[in-house]
Nucleic acid binder design. Structure first.
Lengths: 345, 345
DNA sequence: CTGAAAGCGCTTACAG
DNA sequence: CTGAAAGCGCTTACAG
């Protein structure tokens, strides 16, 4: 393997000069620089990353840990993170723990051992607490995205699920709906309980009574949206609108409702959460679910800024940034008023 | 930052002994090992990755470069690569070039500079040639997946698009179809021309004449499937079956055909390529496209094995491994024979 | 503008 | 079973 000394010898200069050229530092005569660059090019020299970061004490890398690479709104986030990091001349590298705690611990050790200058931990997993604490113990730059260790006082970027859910249900209420159902996620997860509470708050604010028949508790697993809507439409007084914990349940609910002869949006308006369609936009579909959309660009920008600030000054106070969702109006909702009028008329 | 010397001093042993413990090497008395481990734990010590790889000349890392993280069948591949690498005690780290050549060059430099022991370059991009050659010049372990620099003699894992396409069209022929159309991809790309040639070969083998009206040339862009099928169904003698370059076109074609009053599969059978549904399986849909499926597990396993073999022995001859696709039978095809019989009856 | 020397934090022979 | 010493390939003061 060819190293900086080989280049120095061939170019007839010192290692120091080669180093200056590699790092684009000033104080090298133009012809010297040129000669060195030619030698580097000619000998296919690539500076050793390990040696560089060992001595400079920085890797120029931000590490991102995912639980899994899957088709979700957070896949888009990866590309955006890279884009913003690139603007700060940082490399952004990703890994997937494949939902294996040991693998995640391995990647944390890898990054915190100096392979990265900071770590972004993405996604919610209560088992992460121990790892998060380890990272904090060594005062290693860290940003969480969508995680909830509120007691830990760390950089965290979160989505305002409560307000988003309230806004979703307000949207339905403003369309004249009062019989509004909710299919929950796993209420042990913060996102699910927040969305559930937003649903309740919207009803309360509008003076609509909470009807326990209209709330279907699920763990957000496969088929939970379909099973949920099946229960709801079989009620004596079925709801005219439905807010689901996420889009998967929303799409499932739409499909199942139609199968059962309940038209969407004619007889049932549906609002989901996440607007996953932005990831799936290439899949043609006649139905576009109305949903709450997360501001991915802003999230990526903030995450990168936060981690870099933390890298540059390790004594900064941790920040918690909250982002609001906005409604995407698809084709799965319609005002209730008009139907009542035409029924009367 | 606390280092191996701090641990050695506190534990009352030498750095060498600490190193042995860190690396699980034999030749350390059990109580010594225990004492060292406790010291490491108590002082939150994490070995410096840069120093380790500088001296050991290995990173324990395989780098994977994507053009972009997006919702495709190759997203699943990422998780599988991690899984297999993990089995060999390698970390698998990923990066996205965001389709920016400079960014890709930066990541190549990063990995080949010692941040990784080998690189897997994923996806087809003719601009990659220069980078591939650079990596080859320094004899750095490299595996391409689905790329086609046939002249370069490098490790490559490819899908047999020709045979796959032939098999797809054979499937339609065996159902009694003869009027079989094809919507192409961008024929400048190897995958597209191979699939096109497989289509032709299937027709030839069955003694069916090539009908140029049945072939719609596209660049596989948005709406190419919809536009293609629109042309086809307006022919005097419209085809009874369609093979599309990929699933996106397939799904588009199905939807557009139905919109135009052409039932799928009643009046038109459609076969796609890639079986992207395995990535999208959570999206409920009443239609499941029949498609050619790539053996992702085998591809991931082979890629990891190939790169590790190359890391362990840099003088091995490059291998080109070809994988066959298999048909996934969805609900978008049906035999022509039955319809003819019922038409007659 | 250029270079000699020290040192980053480890692992690896080597010696005992 | 344990440790002293050399050295991996760089960058960073420092000196000139």
């Amino acid at each position: 393997m060819i190293n900086i000394f080989d280049i120095a010898k061939t170019a007839g200069v010192s290692k120091t000069t080669v180093s200056r050229v590699i790092n684009n530092q000033p104080g090298v005569r133009e012809d010297t620089r040129k000669k060195v660059l030619e030698t580097i090019e000619g000998m296919n020299y690539i500076p050793n990353q390990a040696a560089r970061s060992l001595v400079s004490r920085k890797a120029g890398v931000i590490g991102v840990i995912y639980n899994e690479f899957n088709t979700s709104v957070y896949l888009e986030l990866a590309n955006l993170l890279e884009k913003y990091a690139s603007g700060y001349s940082y490399n952004m590298v990703f890994c997937s723990s494949n939902d294996d705690f040991n693998a995640k611990a391995r990647y944390v050790q890898y990054f915190t051992g100096g392979a990265a200058d900071g770590v972004i931990l993405f996604g919610s997993d209560t088992r992460d607490r121990e790892l998060v604490q380890k990272i904090e113990n060594i005062n290693f730059p860290l940003v969480l995205i969508e995680n909830h260790f509120n007691d830990l006082n760390i950089n965290n970027i979160i989505i305002d699920n409560f307000s988003g859910a309230k806004r979703a249900v307000d949207y339905l209420i403003n369309m004249g709906h009062e019989k509004i159902a909710h299919i929950t996620g796993n209420l042990n997860h913060r996102a699910a309980s927040d969305r559930m509470n937003g649903y309740i708050e919207a009803l309360n604010s509008a003076g609509i009574n909470y009807n326990k028949d209209y709330v279907v508790f699920t763990n957000a697993g496969d088929n939970s949206g379909a099973a949920g809507v099946e229960k709801l439409v079989s009620l004596k007084e079925p709801p005219t609108a439905l807010f689901t914990f996420n889009d998967l349940q929303g799409y499932e609910a739409v499909q199942k409702a139609v199968e059962l002869g309940v038209g969407v949006p004619q007889e049932l308006s549906v609002v989901g959460f996440d607007n996953i369609y932005q990831v799936l936009r290439f899949i043609p579909s006649s139905m576009r679910l109305t949903s709450m959309k997360q501001p991915m660009e802003k999230i990526a920008e903030a995450a990168v800024k936060l981690i870099i600030d933390n890298i540059n000054d390790k004594s900064t106070e941790p920040k918690v940034l909250t982002f609001e969702t906005e409604i995407y109006q698809g084709t799965s909702c319609r005002p209730l008023v008009k139907r009542l009028q035409s029924d009367v008329g």
